[in-house]
Design a protein around this nucleic acid. Sequence first.
DNA 1: TGACAAACATCAAAGCTTTGATGATGATCG
DNA 2: CGATCATCATCAAAGCTTTGATGTTTGTCA
Lengths: 150, 150
Amino acid sequence: MGMPVSERLGIDIRRTEQELMAAKRAAVDPAGLTVPQYATLFVLAGNAGISGAALARACNVTPQAMAVVLKNLTDRGLVERAPHRWHGNVLETRLTEAGRAALELADARASAIEQAMADELTAAEREQLRALLGRCTAAIQRAAEEQRPS
Amino acid sequence: MGMPVSERLGIDIRRTEQELMAAKRAAVDPAGLTVPQYATLFVLAGNAGISGAALARACNVTPQAMAVVLKNLTDRGLVERAPHRWHGNVLETRLTEAGRAALELADARASAIEQAMADELTAAEREQLRALLGRCTAAIQRAAEEQRPS
DNA sequence: TGACAAACATCAAAGCTTTGATGATGATCG
DNA sequence: CGATCATCATCAAAGCTTTGATGTTTGTCA
């Protein structure tokens, strides 16, 4: 096979992300939320009345994926959706009181995970990590672009 | 909310992993595979006759998740499963010829993504990244452990 | 031998995610 | 004005993933 496992940085990245997801899932679970639901409520808290499509962009998922999350959140009464006043097609989404409460509960615990990660590193190391990840992201995109059989 | 978005390293990690997954998905798609299927075939290529549970551990997913992947691979004739000779309950899984062919096709392209990422960084930077990610992983696990209401 | 723990496989429910396809709405430009 | 394009929402299909619950098989130990 092409590249030895020991040299695949993707494995390390994936491993870390998996650990992060597992920890966040556990952190957010007592609030009755999933990680995507938490992320959605989080964005919503700072952007009341945003559209589903914009929410999808903010969370880096497809509008269809976001629609599923929003449906579940709506069913549980954590968000409300209402048609935009003069902009016919758009549905404005807002947090309900219950939604804000769940978010606050979840965020306290989720933030603790982020905090632990931040505390493990010095400020310089944090910047280093972000810079390295950024370069990886760029390289990945470049490689993907080149592979495209356009 | 607890922690400002600009300080959440998790977001950078997640972003990179998403980009990586998207690129690998595109890379592996012409071979008719998904990323989990590719990962499974890859492990299988180096561990013929492994059990489903062991495969799950190697891929860092639950046995149930692996069962779904294996079912799809079996349905497409890319792997074969047969009961272990003297060990009644275990199903041994092996690549078929078609499976090996799909893997090779997919691996060439997937490796190119990994290679691009590796090429972007110097050897020292690669080690730095792995070390930083490793420390993050450890910190995450520690934090998750502490949060557990045992 | 018989009870028990460990490992394996699997059914089921719930949820997320992607690609593809449709239809509605609003803005732009000829 | 009317065609076109971009944006938004949504239906559908396929696949991955998790938690929880079952049942089988093996090996250990009292």
